[in-house]
Design a protein around this nucleic acid. Structure first.
Lengths: 256, 256
DNA sequence: CTTGACCTTGACGCTGGGTCAACCCCGCAA
DNA sequence: TTGCGGGGTTGACCCAGCGTCAAGGTCAAG
């Protein structure tokens, strides 16, 4: 008769593992001696070695039982099933590695390369890093919500930057980041935005980019949270009959 | 302001995951509204998306925090470390697959091919499956305890089978598996064993195979548990001055 | 007022045991 | 007889990353 540690030693496992196998019913509980110690027979050694061998070969403990009691055909069926799972797990990890590599290559989190390029262009334009972060966060949300639209929108953004008015607008934004609330450049900026919007409406470009209402609202909120002083601009635009920021629209006039 | 499920939806994670991130301190707990609901701002969406992106790329949650707060150089260092772990895990799984394949190829559990071959040879000799199981279990224990000795011992076993006495012995074992306790073939078998042992002693072959005493005792116990009727043979051998089974030796005569 | 959808905290489950903690038991030596 | 060291026993918490109840409070709508 063997004690638990003798058994464990013979089979090359830890005492704790043996007790674990008892708890999950993989190894039957043996009888106890007069002082309550488990008393094992040599058959338990064989069983335990088999368990350990299967477990070490990647068989989940839950399956070890069926496999041990299985006939040869079922056995190889079971083994094949487990091998399939192992292959799937390996593929999953390889996928993960790829994503990780792309993430490291993309410099910054959760953004496709096209966006990173666009942000770089804004930096070249001389935009302040605080504004870049605002843009970046907006793009993170867009990329998470509607990844298929990202590249389209980026193309439109690049096109817009071809127009001198857009560049001028960005420059004004940059200059007024720290401006006082009554800085005249703010009025100038609102004038510019309004004229651009009127032109856009006349050209039939609604500027929606195909983004969902909820997402647009979320991005406006995010912008105001990060840069509360932008509220001035929103307010001024509203006084002139425009609403929104990410997507600027005419406030509809009620004519019931 | 957003509720937890709105936040979760925007970021593409589950509500449960968000709460989990709170619990482990990955996402700061926001303020509550008048009824105790968590009220999130849009910044939380960005943070959550970043977390989800990293986590989805295989970064352990415990590391996400450092990575999010890290500068670009530390960031790529951290990513590389994680990639290394991923590669290690993949290699581990591939190892596991190999072991599993070998296990399936070996037909039976925890046994090298040489042993399987030897057991097949016993089957060809006409041995009963009950005896084969006895042998197999003994080999399982040997393979677990002293794997480096297995092939040597197998070679010796094959050599022994070249001798007609060994074959005769096996045949007798097989015939007496169900024999009555007073079957004359049992005496015949003991005679044969004794003569073989005497010859072996004279030839200087102690028959130990280099196995450890403990292991030998364990295997004897295993045999007697699985086939209690073999006790007759042990007893008869003891009366003639021999002890053991796996390794049969002279009982030393006390000459104090 | 009720319903159904959403929120809250708390706790268990999964995998395979590792690692205490607190206490019993055995043989050996003083 | 007592103490010591090295066994054994059960119980419970710990790791990751949430899923999945459970039991109840809240909210908007019918």
């Amino acid at each position: 008769m063997l004690t638990i540690s003798q058994l464990a030693t013979y089979a090359g496992v830890t005492v704790r593992a043996v007790r674990h196998y008892h708890k999950i019913g993989l190894l039957p509980e043996p009888g106890r001696d007069h002082s309550g110690y488990r008393a094992y027979d040599a058959g338990a050694v064989v069983r335990l070695i088999q368990i350990h061998t299967l477990a070490g070969a990647g068989v989940p403990l839950a399956r070890v039982q069926e496999l041990l009691d299985a006939a040869p055909e079922e056995f190889s069926d079971g083994v094949e099933k487990i091998d399939k799972e192992l292959r799937a797990e390996i593929r999953r990890l390889q996928d993960t590695r790829k994503r990780l590599a792309r993430l490291a290559a993309g410099e910054h989190l959760a953004l496709p390369a096209s966006v990173v390029d666009y942000l770089d262009r804004l930096r070249e334009l001389g935009m302040d890093e605080r504004y870049i972060v605002l843009e970046r966060d907006a793009w993170i949300m867009i990329a998470a919500q509607v990844p298929h639209l990202v590249d389209d929108v980026i193309v439109q953004k690049h096109q817009a930057l071809e127009h001198p008015d857009t560049v001028k607008l960005y420059r004004l934004v940059n200059e007024t980041l720290d401006a006082a609330a009554d800085d005249p450049r703010i009025i100038e900026m609102v004038d510019l935005i309004e004229s651009m919007m009127i032109a856009a409406v006349q050209a039939g470009a609604a500027g929606s980019y195909g983004l969902d209402d909820d997402l647009v609202r979320l991005m406006d909120t995010a912008m105001l949270e990060a840069a509360p002083e932008a509220q001035r601009i929103i307010t001024l635009l509203e006084q002139r009959g425009w609403k929104g920021w990410t997507r600027i629209e005419r406030i509809p006039t009620d004519r019931l």
